[in-house]
Nucleic acid binder design. Structure first.
Lengths: 249, 249
DNA sequence: CGTATACTTGAATTGAGTCAATAAGTGTGG
DNA sequence: CCACACTTATTGACTCAATTCAAGTATACG
């Protein structure tokens, strides 16, 4: 028996709302809390299906017809683009209860792949659209989610275009810390579910450079690394912020 | 008298729809064509105001309260972020009839500055919101516009994270050519309203590197430069596409 | 316990940046 | 129309941050 049992059965993933595999995730993602009647919520539940994905399994493929929209229920997903010769740029990491599957011109705009075993709630795009027409509240919330996504994309462009390797790595660690903080976790301990190669592809660097930058931060006394090197403790948050240079944010 | 007179008076900008300074721009941007009654259109016109901006004049400032939304009526606008030490990343160039002024958390997520003398239609955000509640059609259209913006942002992340200077420059020229093509212009001649420094800040390079890349493309016989170096003729579109590596698009 | 995978570290290379000079284009005023 | 200044763009020489190539080490896993 593995030390960290993973949820691979729909039964386990649906503990929060029996009969609705995605209750918690969908409600949280669309900020329904109290805004939908049980009838309305049931409407959403009718069309949702829970799907499981193993590590490195593709969830959506760029340029495929965008038949579904998704909410990440458990795990971590990387969103990325690829050039013909194999160069990869990860444009974002998703955590529960992130929404994805946005399309441009009826087709998915990116690849999405499970970074660790993950489960997602899948909504047929057509059904979701119909429900959105009924509940404009939902559409407005989606607009706000996507607006934030644009702001994040612009931050990432600034990082990729103008920051040094050390600054990129510091920004990444700080960003992950902010996410897990809002997710309820204590604060200065950050778990990184993705490997160095995924981080490198997100930061526009190589694995070696990411590794060197992390070692550099460790040597400066800004962070500490766990034995498995996937958990980072921030020991000097001020220094990390300085390096990250998050001016406007 | 200058050879290319610019429209600096509201009167000249409102030729298309007398009494409504932004008729053409707002209708086109929201894809109303035929979908709004004259009463509804009038509602939009009531709240719009035309504003003029000189070269390098700021239109919106990052982190200011996002009181207005805009549609570019004439000219060209650069959207950018800046680090504390002055490093700049241009996240996009806007052309008529692009929409901008999207906010995250009630505040503008970026700076926007006129690249050439420009005019914009300004809508008070509150009024626009109210109108959107009345006409969900508009909101859905905005959602689609923003979705495309995310796809473009991801393309740009791939460019900034993984493409060489030559590939970035080729991608930029091809992107500008696509824009002006859809804008009605013939095809292989592209006018670049922005200077090399703005291009460099968009591509995550320096002006020198952009200049070298353009010279390289010229030497390869892919493009030709006009005397004023702001108009590019694409002489080998296939070679340009190969260099740009626009896999999925 | 041994093998595979992931990560780190070192040395050499290189693409883009920096610094510096030149060239071309624009605008002004005589 | 020309001379001058000013801005913008190009080109060259050198530097450096990050990549590439190459070991080496640690951790996970069967």
């Amino acid at each position: 028996m593995p030390t960290k049992p993973r949820s691979n059965s729909p039964a386990e993933a649906s503990t929060e709302a029996p009969g609705n595999p995605c209750g918690a995730a969908s409600a949280e993602a669309f900020s329904f809390g109290g805004h939908l009647t049980s009838t309305e919520l049931e409407r959403v539940n009718q069309i949702v299906a829970l799907r499981h994905f193993d590590v490195r399994q593709l969830i959506v493929i760029q340029s495929d017809i965008a038949s579904h929209r998704f909410i990440l229920n458990e795990g971590c997903v990387k969103v990325y683009r690829m050039l013909a010769d194999g160069r990869v740029q990860v444009t974002g990491f998703l955590f529960p209860p992130d929404f994805f599957g946005v399309a441009a011109g009826g087709r998915y705009a990116y690849n999405a792949e499970a970074v660790i075993p993950s489960s997602v709630c899948a909504f047929p795009a057509k059904d979701l659209e119909r429900i959105m027409e009924e509940f404009p509240e939902m559409e407005r919330r989606l607009l706000s989610v996507i607006s934030n996504e644009i702001a994040a994309a612009q931050d990432q462009m600034l990082l990729l275009g103008r920051k040094t390797a050390l600054e990129r790595t510091a920004s990444f660690i700080q960003g992950m810390a902010n996410r897990s903080r809002s997710g309820g976790d204590g604060g200065s301990r950050v778990f990184l579910p993705m490997n160095r190669s995924d981080i490198a592809d997100y930061l526009g660097l190589t694995t070696e450079t990411v590794s060197r930058a992390i070692s550099n931060l460790k040597a400066r006394g800004v962070i500490e690394l766990s034995k498995d090197r996937r958990t980072i403790s921030i020991t000097d948050g001020a220094a990390l912020s300085d390096l990250a240079e998050d001016s406007g944010q």
